[in-house]
């Protein structure tokens, strides 16, 4: 693979399970050395895409190349160039952390001494050295994910697939996973990351592909996607929730659209960033509304998702949530 070729190139990818269309002709690419975030709710087709790109599943139509190799025609050669880790933390619970890594290294056909040295190195880097000799079933959720990620990295694959790597983790473990992933990308690995967490895509991904019901509905950098939704938003938390109507009336004059009460805060889209907070404080003060907190916020990816799909990212309105889980 030369430096200019895309590490991941997907064209018109289709996959159905019976009458359910999981992917309806999906296109996306990822340049070598970048992180592509595949963002979507449960059942959007993210896991199906990952399973096709990691040779676990054959597509019904379309083409996909990873590291310059076709995922169906060159599947056997491709497996030596990819690593897979994800939400199911596929480690053997009855083996020690060290034995898990050694086994995976040997199955990549590394020599025994090589596999062991690399296992020791990764356990150290992933802060698992103290737990190296314990069965993985004694590990916390965060430790298992780190072991799973270490297993995916043992052969230094040029392309890494992470299927919802932090789903179900506590905030601290999540942050630690993010740091581990960032360290990999800094080292030049191409990463395809699926997530239903907008902040995760925002933080880790160079480019984001938003998919919903098996279709790509948007693509771009985090900033490009946010620009599609438009300007800044003023958020005011009130000392007394009963003042909401008066606050909305007071801010209406300066807002691009009518302010609204959401999640206990009054939100108002504004066109002009400079002076917006001072103006809002003056207006609210004049209306005798007490302010608990006030801030200007750029649109979040959540706003992007609502704007693109008419529904939030983490709720599936059709009730076919967990399609990936049910049919995969």
């Amino acid at each position: 693979m030369n430096a200019t070729e895309d590490a991941i190139a997907v064209e018109g990818l289709q996959k159905s399970y019976g009458s359910v269309r999981a992917l309806c002709g999906v296109d996306f690419t990822a340049q070598a050395g970048t992180v592509l975030g595949l963002l979507g709710p449960n059942g959007a087709g993210k896991t199906t895409a990952v399973r096709i790109l990691t040779t676990l599943l054959k597509p019904d139509g379309g083409r996909a190349r990873v590291a310059g190799l076709d995922v169906t025609k060159d599947a056997a050669a491709l497996r030596a160039r990819i690593g897979l880790a994800g939400q199911y933390a596929a480690v053997d619970e009855n083996l020690t952390g060290f034995a898990n890594l050694e086994m995976v290294g040997r199955l990549y056909h590394m020599g025994r001494a090589d596999a062991r040295a690399r296992a020791t190195e990764l356990l150290e880097r992933f802060e698992l050295t103290d737990a190296a000799k314990r069965p993985a079933k004694t590990y916390s959720g965060g430790m298992r994910r780190r072991l799973d990620l270490a297993a995916a990295l043992i052969f230094r694959p040029p392309v890494l697939f992470l299927d919802e790597p932090t789903t179900g983790l506590d905030p601290r473990s999540r942050l630690s996973m993010w740091e581990m992933i960032e360290a990999r990308t800094a080292a030049g690995t191409t990463v395809l990351l699926t997530t239903q967490y907008l902040d995760e895509a925002d933080r880790l991904a160079d480019r984001i592909v938003v998919i919903d019901h098996g279709n790509v509905i948007a693509e771009g950098t985090s900033d490009e996607l946010k620009d599609r939704v438009g300007g800044e938003r003023l958020e005011v938390e009130l000392e007394d929730g009963g003042d909401a109507e008066r606050a909305i009336a007071a801010l209406a004059g300066m807002a691009a659209e009518r302010p609204a009460l959401e999640d206990g805060a009054v939100r108002a889209p504004v066109n002009q960033r400079s002076g917006a907070i001072a103006e809002a404080v003056r207006r609210l003060d004049a209306a005798d509304v007490g302010i608990e907190d006030i801030r200007l916020q750029r649109p979040t990816l959540d706003d992007v998702f609502v704007a693109l799909t008419g529904h939030g990212a983490e709720v599936d309105p059709d009730g076919d949530a967990a399609l990936d889980e049910a049919v995969a």
Partner: peptide, 17 residues
């Protein structure tokens, strides 16, 4: 059930092993 089969099938190992 635990997803280990996915890991094995994504590795460059023998399909029968």
């Amino acid at each position: 059930q635990k997803g280990l089969i996915d890991r094995f099938r994504s590795l460059p190992m023998s399909r029968a092993a």
